[in-house]
């Protein structure tokens, strides 16, 4: 391809191999299907508690994690299923956690709000809004002190940017030039509270200026735009130049949690965002650029469907934790 034509291609198409792009599409489907499976399990009474679904935010999760290896870390949030899958977790063990099984990632102790595969670099979903922000900075400090080149991506929501922890964390990451990328998934609301009401600046990326780091706002439903922003931020972090703040504008299709009656937003707004599905958009882009054809895309989706169906079966078959083990994992097991 001529160089000019190359440059007109979206970043993701230029930058990633067709295999990597197909895998990204598969993960986006996997997230959507995991969330739908979780929702259905809840409706059928298979699980208790609550859950925060990330349907509509799949591009943000997957594109953000595109260049991360298992050595790189993420900190996640209460809306963390997508991050977990994007970072490489197995949906069977995720469902098992969801069903409270010993075979789940947290051995049934954590549930939806804490599902995380530590082995793939996920330092944890979090029940506390903003809880992961300083932890990510700590992970950045470790990498720097130990001379490693891994980076940490810190996912958080628009709501979290008003917690004190956000401001303290960004400041420290900046003064110590730590390899941390703060990724705000701005889905317009923290529960029912509009970011436009709760946050004093128009863009959350504007906050970066206060902490002397680059800040950028991108269309979080545009896979390529997110991947490019992360590419730049990760390069900066690996080069020892310090943290960045990336704001992915996106939207959650479902209510905040299972108890949301959606009284704070209109049906029109929800439908408008749903008509711009990030998965269909990415899929169309891949087809348009010849990465795959319709049949290929169908096959990717079908593979994700299989994985979810198998995952649910794996989860159902797993054993429950023993009641007598209620205090197991509170401390390290004493060495024998």
């Amino acid at each position: 391809m001529a160089r000019d034509a190359q440059e007109n291609l979206p970043f993701a198409i230029r930058h990633f191999s067709p295999e990597a792009l197909k895998e990204a599409l598969r993960k986006m489907h996997l997230i959507r299907l995991f969330e739908e499976g979780a929702e259905e399990s809840y409706m059928r009474g298979l699980i208790h508690g609550t859950m925060h679904l990330s349907i509509g935010q799949e591009a943000s999760a997957v594109a953000t994690c595109m260049e991360l290896t298992d050595a790189d870390k993420i900190t996640s949030t209460h809306r963390g299923h997508g991050h977990c899958i994007a970072k490489g977790a197995d949906v069977g063990r995720m469902f098992a956690e969801f069903f409270g099984k010993e075979t789940g990632y947290c051995h049934g102790r954590g549930g939806s709000m804490h599902i995380a595969d530590v082995k793939t670099g996920n330092l944890g979903a979090n029940g506390i809004v903003g809880g992961g922000l300083p932890i990510a900075v700590g992970a950045g400090l470790t990498a720097k002190r130990l001379g490693r080149d891994d980076v940490t991506v810190c996912f958080f929501g628009d709501g979290a940017n008003n917690e004190g922890a956000f401001h303290e964390a960004l400041n420290m990451a900046s003064i110590w030039k730590l390899p941390v990328i703060f990724v705000c998934e701005n889905n317009k609301y923290g529960m029912s509270t509009a970011a436009a009401y709760a946050t004093a600046v128009p863009n959350i990326s504007d906050r970066a200026a206060a902490y002397s780091m680059p800040g950028v706002t991108v269309d979080g439903n545009d896979f390529s735009a997110v991947a490019e922003a992360l590419h730049i931020a990760i390069a900066r972090a690996r080069a020892g130049e310090g943290p960045s703040l990336v704001e992915n504008l996106t939207y959650r299709w479902r209510g905040h949690s299972k108890s949301d009656r959606n009284r704070y937003r209109t049906k029109d707004e929800i439908e408008d965002w749903m008509s711009r599905d990030p998965i269909q958009r990415f899929r169309a882009e891949l087809i348009a650029h010849g990465v795959l054809d319709e049949a290929g895309a169908e096959a990717v989706e079908a593979a994700a469907k299989d994985a979810v169906a198998q995952g649910i079966e794996f989860a159902k078959a797993g054993p429950a934790p023993a009641i007598t083990d209620v205090t197991k994992f509170v401390h390290a097991e004493a060495a024998a």
Binding site: G111, D325, V326, T327
Partner: peptide
């Protein structure tokens, strides 16, 4: 309460 955080699994949670 048990000397543990509250677990997710419903049976463990009751036992806690």
């Amino acid at each position: 309460g048990a000397e543990a955080p509250i677990p997710y699994n419903p049976d463990l949670e009751r036992a806690a």
